[in-house]
């Protein structure tokens, strides 16, 4: 018997592609776009969301029979806010520069629609183990898009990956730059993230035509 039944495995697999939180469910876009100019920030953001969503889904799922329906939003917000404070304090302690780059966007995980969306749609109606898998799956789906966008923006915009100069040195004119390649400064500015995500959606929906929206 496998570790995960087929149904459980689908909880993780679906959000990675055909039910991706960003490109299909349209959740959690706010933070996804603002911090993807560098790959490192994208990875840290993805890990933070993975932690908050995984743990938060379990907590809400355990509390689901105790929370009165009328005040559930406030309860959910308090749970997320407590988890986000943990992430924020850990980042401030161990990666201060990075927490400066991410600035308010760590705080904005609280209102990240993915988290509230999964709490409402899944954790309130399912057991802890399933909710955990659902949380991990959705956070991974979110992280995948973040890393793809961060990869292209850093590579094309600064010619680096994780701060390493992979395309050669633009000032010393080595590597690609020696044959006249230039960095595309356009990729660094915020709106470029939107266009990159738009193109990802385009590619995904061309490959899987069932996802195309009726206009």
């Amino acid at each position: 018997m496998a570790l995960l039944s087929k149904k459980d495995a689908n909880l993780i697999k679906d959000p990675l592609a055909d039910n991706n939180p960003i490109t299909i469910q349209v959740l959690g876009i706010c933070s996804a776009l603002a911090i993807t100019a560098e790959l490192k920030a994208s990875v840290v953001m993805a890990i933070s969301v993975l932690f908050v969503l995984g743990v938060g889904n379990v907590v809400i799922s355990l509390l689901r029979n105790i929370i009165p329906a009328k005040i559930r939003i406030i309860v959910q917000l308090v749970v997320v806010a407590a988890l986000v404070i943990i992430v924020d304090q850990v980042l401030k302690a161990f990666a201060y520069d990075l927490s400066k780059t991410l600035s308010v966007f760590i705080g904005l995980i609280i209102t990240n629609c993915i988290i509230m969306g999964r709490f409402e749609a899944f954790a309130l109606g399912n057991g802890p183990w399933k909710s955990f898998l659902d949380g991990i799956g959705n956070a991974l789906g979110y992280g995948v898009i973040l890393v793809i966008v961060g990869f292209f923006r850093e590579l094309l915009g600064s010619g680096t990956l994780f701060g390493m100069k992979v395309l050669g040195d633009p000032i010393a004119k080595t590597g690609l730059y020696s044959i006249g390649y230039e960095n595309n400064g356009f990729m660094i500015i915020p709106p470029a993230a939107l266009i990159v995500v738009g193109i990802i959606i385009w590619v995904q929906r061309s490959r899987n035509r069932a996802l195309i929206e009726e206009a």
């Binding site: 349209v26 995500v197 738009g198 009726e214 206009a215």
Partner: peptide, 24 residues
């Protein structure tokens, strides 16, 4: 006549990006 895979969400993202460049 927007290309089918771009309809809805995709084109909205790209338009927002273009508007963002304008606001820059």
């Amino acid at each position: 006549n927007v290309p089918a895979p771009l309809r809805g969400l995709g084109i909205t993202f790209i338009i927002t990006g273009l508007m963002g460049i304008g606001f820059q």
